[in-house]
Amino acid sequence: MSYTFQFGVIAQYQNEILAGIWMTIKLSVASIILGCACGIVLASVRSMKPGIGRILVDAYVEIIRNTPFLVQLFIVYFGMPGLGIRVSAVTAALIGMTINLAAYSTEIIRAGIESIHKSQIEAGEALGFTRLQIYRHVIIMPAIAKVYPALCSQFVLMMLASSVCSAISTNELAASAAFVESQSFRSFEVYIVVTLIYLALALALRGMLAMIGLWLFGRRVARRTAVALPEVQT
C-alpha cells in the first residue's frame, strides 16, 4: 500500500468543521433538554392509572423504538410537507431527535418510577407532603437518580446518532465532513479526523453529564455515570 496521508489539507477547512461541531452540539443539547422533558411528562402519564393515556404512550414508545432513526427523519423531512407541514433540515433534525429521544427516555424513566417502592409514597403521605411534593421529591427525583446513568448513555447515543441527520442535509459535523471530503478528496484523512472529534465530543458529553449528575444527585450517581458505558436499551 503506497499511500501518503495528508492531514495538513484538512486544516484549511477548519471553519467548516467548527461550524459542523457547533451545529452538532446545538442539536444534541436542544434535543436532550426537550427529549428528556417530554420523557418525564410521558413517563408520568404512563405511570398513572390504566387508561387511554397509558395505551397512547405505550404505542408511541413501541413505534419509535422499533423503527430506525433514519426513517423517522425521512418521514419528518420528506413526508411532512405532503401533509402541509414544511420545515427546514435543521428543524426536521431537531424534531426527529426529540421524538426519538423522548421515546427512549420515557421507557428509561418509567423503569425508574416503577422501581420506587409504594411504602416510600406512603411515608411521604405520613409526613404530610402534598401530592405535588410527593410527586417531585419522592417519585420523580429519586426515579431519575436511579436511572441517570442509563439516561446519560442514551443521550450520548443520541449525540452520535445525530450524524445520520446529514442524510437529510442538516449541516452538522458529518455533513461538514462530507463537504470537506468533496473539496479536498482526502476522504480517509477527513473521516479519521471527524471520527476523533466525535470521540472527543462523546467523552466530553459524558463528563459533562457526570458533573450535572454530581450537582443534582450527589457523588454516588455521578461516579456510576462517569464509568458507565452506553447501555443497550432493550
Binding site: 500500500m1 499511500y3 450520548v156 452520535l160 446518532a161 445525530s162 450524524s163 445520520v164 446529514s166 458529518a174 465532513a177 476522504s187 480517509f188 473521516y191 479519521i192 471527524v194 471520527t195 466525535y198 470521540l199 462523546a202 467523552l203 458505558l229 452506553p230
Partner: peptide, 24 residues
C-alpha cells in the same frame, strides 16, 4: 469497546468504505 461505543456507526461505515478502497 470505548472507541467503538464513542463514535457514530456512520463514521465506522465511512472509514471502512474508504479504508478498504485505500488498501486497493
Amino acid at each position: 469497546i470505548q472507541i467503538i461505543q464513542g463514535i457514530p456507526v456512520l463514521m465506522i461505515l465511512f472509514l471502512s468504505y474508504y479504508g478498504l478502497s485505500l488498501a486497493g
